[in-house]
Amino acid sequence: MAGLNEKHILKRIARGLVPEAVLSRKKQPYRSPDAVCFLDPDAPGYVQDLFSDAAINRAGIFDSAAVGALTTKCRAVVQMHGGDRSLSNTDNMAIVGLLSAQLVHEHFISNRPQSSEVDITFTTVIDRLTGRTDSGQEAMNT
């Protein structure tokens, strides 16, 4: 670190190997992936499914009417203008945020892996009221 000059040491090592223009280039913002790819008519089917009223209500995180209004507007904007410059940053982030939250819900809450095959027995019980601690003989080394 040399102040805000990122990768200072790497740049010193690379001097002579990498053009000066690259070494002295300022940090540039980069954001990916953009919402446009999820609003395209060719977007994967799961996107449409996760944005449906039924899926939004099942997860219960977002208001399905508002999500419907947002996705309808954004699809129309993308269809009319195309390209990732057409959506506002706020709408863009809202779409990606919604989809991410819906995906997390779908994979880790709705369809979480069944744990019934793994039999867990607690061998150490700590009673926080009395402070008594029972350790079973087969207690794990924790």
């Binding site: 208001d63 009417a65 508002a66 999500v67 209004a69 947002l70 507007k73 959506l87 506002s88 940053n89 706020t90 709408d91």
Partner: peptide, 26 residues
């Protein structure tokens, strides 16, 4: 087009950019 809701507060003297209702593209 920006709030997607009838219940969100929106005052007539509220700064649209300052309160994040719209951004530069909005």
């Amino acid at each position: 087009n920006f709030l997607y809701s009838d219940s969100q507060p929106l005052a007539d003297d509220q700064s649209l950019l300052g309160t994040g209702v719209v951004d530069s593209t909005g």
